[in-house]
Write a protein that binds this DNA or RNA. Sequence first.
DNA 1: CAGTGGTCTAGACCACGCG
DNA 2: GCGTGGTCTAGACCACTGG
Lengths: 266, 266
Amino acid sequence: MNRKTRAAAANMNVKVAAQKAAPKKRRSAKNTSRKPLYQQVDNIIRQRLIDNVWVPGDALPSEIQLAAELKVSQGTVRKALNDLVAENLLYRRQGLGTFVSEHTERRALFLYFSIVGNDGSRLLPESKILKCAEVRATAEEAEKLQLEPGEEVVRFRRVRFFNNVPTIMENITLPLEHFPGFGTDVEPPNNLFRFYQSNYGITVSKAEEHLRAVGASTEEAEFLGIKKGTPLLEIERVARILDGRPVEIRVSHCETSNYRYAAERG
Amino acid sequence: MNRKTRAAAANMNVKVAAQKAAPKKRRSAKNTSRKPLYQQVDNIIRQRLIDNVWVPGDALPSEIQLAAELKVSQGTVRKALNDLVAENLLYRRQGLGTFVSEHTERRALFLYFSIVGNDGSRLLPESKILKCAEVRATAEEAEKLQLEPGEEVVRFRRVRFFNNVPTIMENITLPLEHFPGFGTDVEPPNNLFRFYQSNYGITVSKAEEHLRAVGASTEEAEFLGIKKGTPLLEIERVARILDGRPVEIRVSHCETSNYRYAAERG
DNA sequence: CAGTGGTCTAGACCACGCG
DNA sequence: GCGTGGTCTAGACCACTGG
């Protein structure tokens, strides 16, 4: 349902910091704040993304318009925008404009799903939810989600399939505060990040993953059709929104005889 | 021993592509090649790094000097340099200059070693080599190292310790062609990438990693003090040099009850 | 065609590191 | 003080997109 609380915004005091060069004349006041102009511009735009002044899919004003509004040169705006593009928050298309990134299927697949076939092929799994409940956060969950101990969370478990072969067992924990009605009012779909975005206005922008090897539990062995104790790849992920606040914990156990977790370094 | 074959270089025909604007006058020939100027500059610098015209630790000429040499504006050189900095090939220090990146302990730790403690702490393991031999590449090794099947490689096995606790078992394979005398003339040290760089002029610049869960072999169980079949985290890594050619395969099996593999996404 | 981002230039001043 | 990279501006032209 609903979407974007779209802040009242845009009535903010524009004017970035201080004045720049009057190329041939005297210098006047210097940059009063400490940060470079383009970082201030970056922060203003970033804050507008956080405040949903512009939501995923929207086009931003053109460089020239932003430059005029913020009283800086086009080049300074460009640098700020390019930094945001490098962070995957925006993308630009020549001749069209600058847009807020969305969690498309493709984006989810390449940016937040690291499991590939043994040959390197990428495919998105299907999902089946096993159970779902509103419960109190454990101490560990509360710490990772920056909640008070005992605060309410939604916790659910699902199994994921590649070509109808069960391969991954997942536990997902969400702070109930940010996801009212989750799992009771509506059935969560396969692509959760897009769901968070379209239904709760919550855009995941980065995540940390920690991996280890564990043995399959009795339940996992049953679902995955393997022996108890079979080595599984555990991926624990904490996903964060634009301002860095954590909004999801996901612990996945993957059967890796036919799949791999892929990463690049350097 | 030795280092840098430092190409004869620098006698190359400078002059990037075509001529730029004479701001107020007529336009002349356009950019004859297809690529943007700054990419051509990037490629020239990149090639000089590949050719060891500049070796790790060296300072590059200043932006102004490069701009003059290549007949482009300082801004164009700057963009090319910043792109290379973003790839970790160079680094810049205000007031000092632009330098070629080295494989320092710190760089190795943060860029190419992903194992952290359960609390997120980073520490470098010690190593003990178990065996080392020059052998023929298997079909799989040959394919991953882009060699002809049966070509000679150096293969060695080592165990790695955190605080004297054996935690990781590794198999490493190198093409003998690039590493003459490896493991016979000299004992390979703990930090291999720096060793490759200082002794063979080979700089690893990126790597792909593939992870899965496996059970400990009899030998691994013995060395790591665990039961056979205990789940271990397998990290298979192919390391590449500047021009993309693979130079090392490393397969690590990590005992992850006290350690994690850490990654960031997004 | 007008409007967008992409490239390129020229030149100014700032901040830093070192002698 | 001088040379380095870092920031910022102004303005030109190119390349792509859409109506």
